[in-house]
Amino acid sequence: MTEQSCIFCAIAAGQQPATVVYRDDRVTAFWDIRPQAKVHVLIIPNQHFSSLDDAINADPALLGHCLQVAARLAREQGIHTTGYRVVTNVGPHSGQSVFHLHFHLLGGNPLRLALG
């Protein structure tokens, strides 16, 4: 996938519709169209990185900012007191289906442990 064909790049650029809940010059956050929890928000860097593996050496401060935004949104959604999960998938074996780095903020109901 190239940046030109990346759906998340198009959302970050405002060229593709999404229900955006947060946007700044570095990240965009929006509701997942196939939610796996009552609260399921995706937090993406506006700059294209294929995955965490791609971004780790390029801009470590951006990764911290993504997590700060996730915590802020958890508070705004009222899930910070009961608990929430922040997940990123890396590569096809992990279930990554859109190859643009993104973090899932999940909460609002009890979550199953989804390992193995």
Rank of each mutant, 00 (worst) to 15 (best):
A10T: 08
V87R: 00
R26Y: 09
L73F: 03
I56F: 06
G14A: 09
H80A: 14
V69D: 01
D54R: 03
V87Y: 01
L111I: 01
L115V: 13
V86P: 10
Q96R: 08
A12G: 13
E3T: 15
A18T: 12
V41I: 15
M1F: 07
G116N: 13
Q96M: 06
L42F: 05
A71V: 04
Y22H: 15
G116L: 11
H93P: 04
S94K: 02
V69M: 02
Q15P: 06
Q77H: 11
L63A: 05
G64H: 05
P35R: 07
I56H: 09
L115M: 12
L113A: 11
H40F: 08
P92Q: 15
A18D: 12
Y22F: 15
F30W: 08
G14I: 10
F103M: 13
H102E: 11
P60K: 07
I11E: 13
H93M: 08
R85D: 02
I43G: 02
F49P: 08
A74F: 02
L113G: 11
T19L: 10
S5W: 01
H40T: 09
N57G: 13
I7V: 15
C9E: 09
H40L: 04
P45E: 04
I11N: 13
V41H: 01
A71I: 00
G78F: 00
P60H: 04
T19E: 15
V27F: 05
Q77W: 00
A70M: 04
L115W: 15
H80S: 13
D54L: 01
G78T: 03
P92I: 12
